[in-house]
Design a binder for these strands. Structure first.
Length: 175
DNA sequence: TAAAAGATCCGCT
DNA sequence: GCGGATCTTTTAA
């Protein structure tokens, strides 16, 4: 699922971004997954069926995930970077003055800031029932360009190559 | 009730 | 590359 989400469009109101970096997290055998030790108040959304939005806060920023498993299994894909596609003026407004185009949303906290996502949106349905926030696609296939690597900023299960990136340098050649 | 850890970011060097 | 900011959840006493 983490690879399949690359190239998809994350839509929140007028703002749209194409997903270019993801990380997978799974309850089973993945110690760095929030759901590894079972359900808590924070991670409850991870145990819903796939298609829901899981948002949590870390340090001073929010991180946005897509729930991926069947109900009862805690699992999600962290969206780590998007390519801004629409609503770019509004994204600039939400980010610090002088932020470059690339830096608008090239990190988990940054893209939440650019898209205006916070913990209040945890549990939203991304599959189309909510006209404000959803995930769409245009049929683009990034599978040949995906690079796998260890996940960023974690201390456990660092051997898993569950981070998937479409390098920023490739993007101009895709249009 | 308290303390520590954490899927980050930014500025400085 | 490094450290600090700064806040919520979780866990232990």
């Amino acid at each position: 699922m983490a690879q399949a989400l690359l190239g998809k469009y994350l839509v929140h109101g007028p703002c749209v971004g194409q997903i270019i970096e993801t990380e997978a997290y799974h309850q089973q055998g993945d110690e760095s997954c929030h759901a590894y030790r079972g359900m808590t108040k924070r991670n409850a959304t991870m145990f819903q069926r796939g298609g829901y939005l899981y948002v949590y806060r870390i340090h001073q920023v929010h991180c946005l995930n897509v729930v991926t498993e069947t109900a009862g299994i805690g699992s999600a894909v962290l969206i780590r970077a998007i390519r801004p596609v629409a609503g770019i003026a509004l994204m600039h407004q939400r980010r610090p003055p002088g932020t470059s185009f690339k830096q608008l949303a090239n990190g988990p906290g940054k893209l939440c800031q650019a898209l205006g996502i916070d913990r209040a949106m945890d549990g939203c349905d991304l599959t189309g029932s909510d006209p404000l926030i959803w995930i769409g696609e245009d049929g683009s296939d990034f599978s040949a360009l995906i690079q796998a690597s260890p996940r960023i900023g974690i201390r456990k299960a660092t051997d898993l190559l569950w981070r998937f990136v479409v390098p920023w340098e490739y993007l101009p050649y895709l249009q």
